[in-house]
Every structure is written in C-alpha cells, then in structure tokens.
Design a protein around this nucleic acid. Structure first.
Lengths: 147, 147
DNA sequence: ATACTTGCAAATGATTTGCCAGTGT
DNA sequence: ACACTGGCAAATCATTTGCAAGTAT
C-alpha cells in the first residue's frame, strides 16, 4: 500500500534524473527512498543516518548535494523552519503547504489552494508571482494557544 | 522629521525594557537606534558595525543577545530570508510583510492586511493562529519574471 | 574510458555560550 | 552593593567545498 506507491514515485523521480543526463546512483536512490519512507519533511541529517537506521547510511555532504540537485529538478522541496536545520520533502504532485507551530514545533500540512486568494491578490497589487512553498507558515497551534 | 519620530519610537522601546525590569544599557539603545536609522530589515552584523561606521560599534554577540531580548518583548521582528544571515527590523506598529525575489534578492514591503483573508481562512479550517511575520514571502518579481 | 559522484576532512558562515570585567539602578 | 550586561574568545550547528578514489553509463 505504501510500497507500490512510493516505488512508483521514486522511479518517476529517477526518470527525471535520467532525462536530465544525471546519473542514478545508489545514494540518490536512497535519498529519495528516505523521503518517501519518512512521509513528512525531514532534515538532511536524518536522511544521512538512513532515518535512524531503517536504511543504509550516507554521508551528509552527499545528502546535501543530492537534495540540492533534486530541488533544482523540482523533485524535492526545501523548507526553512524558524529554528534548527532545514527540512526536505518530496515535491511530488501534492499541493501542500506547511504550518509550523512556533512554540512546540509541530508541523501540519494544509492544502495549498487555501492560499490561492492571496496569490491572486498579491499578483494584482504587486505583480509578484508569490510562492509559499519555501517557508512554512509560522503560527501557534490550537494546543499551545490554549495554554 | 526622521529624528523626532525615531527618538519617539526608541524611547517607547526603552520604556518597554524598563517595564520588564530590564536595563537600559548603551548597547541596547544603540541596537534600537541602528534599527531605526536603517529603516529596512538589517543583519546583526551591520548593527554590530554601527551600520558601517555611522554609529559606535558593538560586539556581535551582544547584538544577538539584545535582538533576542527585544524580539521576545515584541519590539523587534526577526526575518529569515531564504539565503544568508537573518534580518532584523523594528516591529513598531507597522503592519508590513515582506516579499523577496528568489532570483534577484529584491525585497519589497506590502501591507499585512493583504494576508488577513488567509489568516481568517486558516483560523477557520485549522484553528491555527497564523502569523506571516517570520519569513518573507518568496516569489518572483515582475522584472525577473519578464526575462 | 570518461565524466559524474561519493566519502572524508577541513573550511565557512551564522549564531550561541562561558566567563570575567564593567555598569545601570 | 548586586544583579544585570558587555566584550572577547572559543564552541556549536548547519551547510559547503576540495580532493582523491569509486562507479554509472
């Protein structure tokens, strides 16, 4: 259920690599598999440790290099939370954006279409083509807001 | 025209410090003056150099410590651009958000009220209290989009 | 065979921390 | 006087880079 789907998407990503004349190496495959297996945005370090041992380890430097390559191909998304290391996730075909709580660090995904009105408004007033995909939206989750 | 206004706001900020039992030290005053004088979001390093010599220099460590204190008091805003060092600005009473171009790095301020509809939508669908003030909104400016 | 990739180690950039001397209240 | 602060130097954290050895095509 998870395997077939992730395999499908991993091979799709690998095809993108090939179509750009880049090599399909073991570490690139592993980086993608880790992202699939994780399911949520993760740090480069966790990918390097194979999600804490679930997959073979890689050198962090290679992870960063590969994530960078994959990001440029549009396969991977790079998120900057307020504090700590950056997070990486598969871009896939999802239209998700993330909310991160500035008190407990909890991450929550929302449908990107929620932001379409703002995108349109910004386009109209500033002529900028806004993307919200680089940063999570910082706020306070209900639980933290309660206390 | 600029002096009176910034003095007014600096003293307001200093009053906040006092009301929290914190000291009004020379370096805290200087950090605030630098932020006022700059008028736009600046790095901790530029504050430490007194905006490149216009003001007395401070140690970066102190600048960071003070910015942190002032941020917690709600006097200073901390922005994370996509690349490079963090930027700091006075929170003041402004309702500004920032757009940053991911191609040329240009920064543009917009009125925060543009985002009110999204804030409301997010509140309704996720119960999160979203703030957009931590990160600039990344996108492409008209000029870069043209080429 | 050749160029792309990797791992390792060292470098870099930004921010933080320990510690003792200095200073606002 | 006393606790809060500042400067300086060293530490830390995240990420990048140089380079020789390894590998996909």
């Amino acid at each position: 259920m998870n395997t077939s789907r992730s395999t499908e998407t991993v091979s799709t990503a690998l095809a993108v690599l090939r179509s750009h004349g880049l090599r399909v190496s073991t570490s690139r495959r592993l980086v993608l598999e880790a992202l699939f297996a994780a399911g949520v945005p993760v740090t480069a370090d966790r990918i390097a440790t194979g999600l804490d041992g679930r997959l073979p380890p890689l050198d962090v430097a290679s992870v960063y290099r590969n994530l960078d390559t994959l990001e440029q191909l549009g396969v991977v998304r790079h998120l900057h939370p307020g504090r700590g290391p950056g997070l990486f996730a598969l871009a896939g075909s999802d239209r998700a954006e993330y909310l991160v709580c500035d008190r407990c660090g909890q991450v929550r995904a929302i449908d990107a279409s929620l932001l379409d009105p703002v995108r349109a408004a910004l386009q109209e007033t500033t002529a900028w083509d806004a993307r919200f995909s680089r940063f999570p939206i910082v706020g306070t989750c209900p639980a933290c807001a309660a206390r």
